[in-house]
Amino acid sequence: MERLIKQGIDLIKGIWSLGVGLAVTAWYLVNRKITVQYPKQVVPREASESFRGPIELVGQPKDPATPKCISCMMCVSACPSGCISITKQKPPKLSPEEEKAFAEAEARGEKPKRPVAPRNPATWRYNYTYCSLCACCIEACPVNSIKFSNELYLAGTSRGDFHYDLLARLKRKAAEAKAAEDAKASETKDSGSADAAAQPGSPNISQAVPEKADEASSASGQAKSEAAL
């Protein structure tokens, strides 16, 4: 008897849960749509910030156009897919007179300081077609010069579109950031209080659309220029 009552209660609970399920989907049915229609809309910036896209270089705090990278090749050897290739900078060429002066000084038994090669890399190539986004290079980097970018909307028409020159990218990014900062500074000077809605990274999707679309097109343009490099 007790079992029967328990079964009856279970039955009523089950039927009730069916109704609850239907109510949930009915609510969704009439509710606002929450997906982003990609070519017309893109996700707002703060949503893409946590996305781990292809790696990029980190600039020095004082000089954002130059990477922190010291060309130690740790990332190259850490990468399981071999998608990073770095060339170091050569030491500056000495003119024949300087060369001679150094030779003479050495002949005298002194130890003159010959100019050494800068630690920054000469080229920093990254083949995204092989990359598995494993973060080994990021772990290996002793100066934290590599990080994941939040590039969400990557598209290309040829394989070469995904062979990146990350040094050029860093330079372009730094220039963009500087330009944006300048513009912002002049704007605040002009109007005193900028319109809050026009701020980048506002949560409104439709607001983010034109700005992001521009970025996407510039990103593809950048990819093309890099492929040409």
Binding site: L29, V30, N31, K33, I34, T35, Q37
Partner: peptide
């Protein structure tokens, strides 16, 4: 359309 709306997406559009 119903599937899309229930999953809070627009469906074929």
């Amino acid at each position: 359309k119903v599937a899309g709306f229930i999953q809070r997406r627009p469906g074929p559009n």
